[in-house]
Design a protein around this nucleic acid. Sequence first.
DNA 1: GACAGGATGTG
DNA 2: CACATCCTGTC
Length: 331
Amino acid sequence: MSSQGLLEGTYGTRMGMTEDTLSLLDRNRGSAELWDMAETKPSMEALERSVPGLYLSCFDMLLTEETTWLVKVSEAPPTLPVPMARMEPQEEPEQCPVIDSQEQGLSPGLEGQEEERSLEQVQSMVVGEVLKDIETACKLLNITPDPIEWSTGNVQKWLLWTEHLYRLPHAGKAFQELTGKDLCAMSEEEFRHRSPQCGDTLHAHLDIWKSAAWMKERCSVGETKTAGNEELWSEADSSCSGQPIHLWQFLRELLLKPHSYGRCIRWLNKEKGIFKIEDSAHVARLWGLRKNRPAMNYDKLSRSIRQYYKKGIIRKPDVSQRLVYQFVHPV
DNA sequence: GACAGGATGTG
DNA sequence: CACATCCTGTC
């Protein structure tokens, strides 16, 4: 089968598939209460924990529950729930011997591992494609990937785009005068209230955008891209020790991973503990992300660093330079 | 924009 | 207590 044929087949079945997979996503609304909480109080503490879980479980469901479905419709390859049908032609059904052998019950011992590995591959590919498609949409619409930053105009653009992509009835009016922040704080319930026909669908799509923005922030420095999934979660090392992370610990963490963060913070003299913040805005954004402080900036971060002067944790080096600090007790 | 540090509020 | 936020002022 030619990729042309695949494309057509995909396109033809897109609507049905989309609805199916979206309703799947909807069943995963376990975290909905958390969003509701965020609505009453914009402290989005629960967000950090809920989003990655939601994100992973979304694709988890796609990749587990739907596996048989994925295999069986190999004549008419499936679409994924997000605008990423374009990736399909690259993945011809003939290219999946693993899944085929599974269908025929071959080598049951290898099956599990092989399946797991191929699922992982598919998963990271899916994540990558989602991010890519969001990026494309952003360029096209001239909006930022993070919904929280959207103006009312941006929200309308996104609505038009999503409606167009999924042939949804126009619901822009129901969401007029809402900013991205408003939208992000809304529960699925409210979405449906404003648009009974497609509120849930829109809410599900917004969730994906939110998760993608979250992911992107986590690995935006460097070209970690999709491959760095494992590294992303192991990054929680010092923060999972229980207590909330301190700023100086966080800075140490970043300095420990020059591969990921070397562009925004690096050692000038590791032995003496002297480091330089190369991209103040970016470091501040990462700190804000870690602490769930969207309004964090370098002005505030540096004020916190200055509090360390008195405590003897961080100081200015003997020859004071812009954006250069020194740990008083280097490791 | 970086930097210094006071004042005040918060979980 | 460890910031987060805001602010005045200097370089």
